[in-house]
């Protein structure tokens, strides 16, 4: 019953827009470092680039997060953990793949222990290329994700 009411309400474009706006501007990110783009994660979160301006706050507890940054390469051992962490996050959840290695395996195309692209393990919303991408590129990735979230549930109707 409740879910039906909720669905009805969400079909009203105005309400849906408000919901999407709220989601887009409060993307809290999980602290999970998988590869060498880790220090840029610090760079983009701290004083100079400060992605908290866009509502992206690094947060230790994954149960309260809705954004997962894959920072660089994902090895076969890490891939299982990435999947576990993704499954533990509450819906709605979004993934941004940072770096060449997270997108396609990139630099490690002939390595025996690197997963050739994290999209083989979890679905990815936005890819940010670079090795490693500059913090400005991270911000662009966040903005692109926000644009995507704002259109959610509105376009198809």
């Amino acid at each position: 019953m409740l879910s039906k009411v909720r669905e009805r309400l969400m079909n009203i474009k105005f309400l849906r827009r408000i919901l999407n706006w709220g989601r887009a501007w409060s993307l809290w990110s999980v602290h999970l470092e998988t590869g060498c783009c880790g220090p840029e994660d610090m760079g983009r979160a701290c004083a100079r680039f400060d992605t908290e301006r866009f509502g992206t706050l690094p947060f230790p507890t994954l149960r309260e997060c809705d954004l997962l940054f894959i920072t660089g390469l994902v090895t076969k051992k890490m891939a299982k953990r990435v999947r576990m962490i993704y499954d533990q996050m509450p819906d709605p959840k979004y993934v941004i793949a940072i770096g060449e290695c997270a997108a396609t395996g990139g630099f490690y195309w002939d390595s025996y222990s690197v997963v050739q692209g994290v999209d083989r393990v979890i679905p990815v919303d936005v890819y940010v290329p670079g090795c490693p991408p500059r913090p400005e590129a991270w911000i662009q990735g966040i903005k692109m994700l926000q644009e995507k979230i704002k259109k959610e549930g509105i376009d198809e109707k």
């Binding site: 060498c36 051992k77 890490m78 630099f107 490690y108 002939d110 025996y112």
Partner: peptide, 28 residues
């Protein structure tokens, strides 16, 4: 969790190509 086999990768590349490879050991 981040084992990439850098030493093995280095055997498949010529000397000058190996500079970025070894850099990724500690590009952090």
């Amino acid at each position: 969790y981040t084992h990439r086999g850098i030493e093995k990768m280095a055997e498949n590349r010529i000397y000058i190509q190996n500079i970025p490879v070894v850099e990724r050991i500690n590009s952090y």
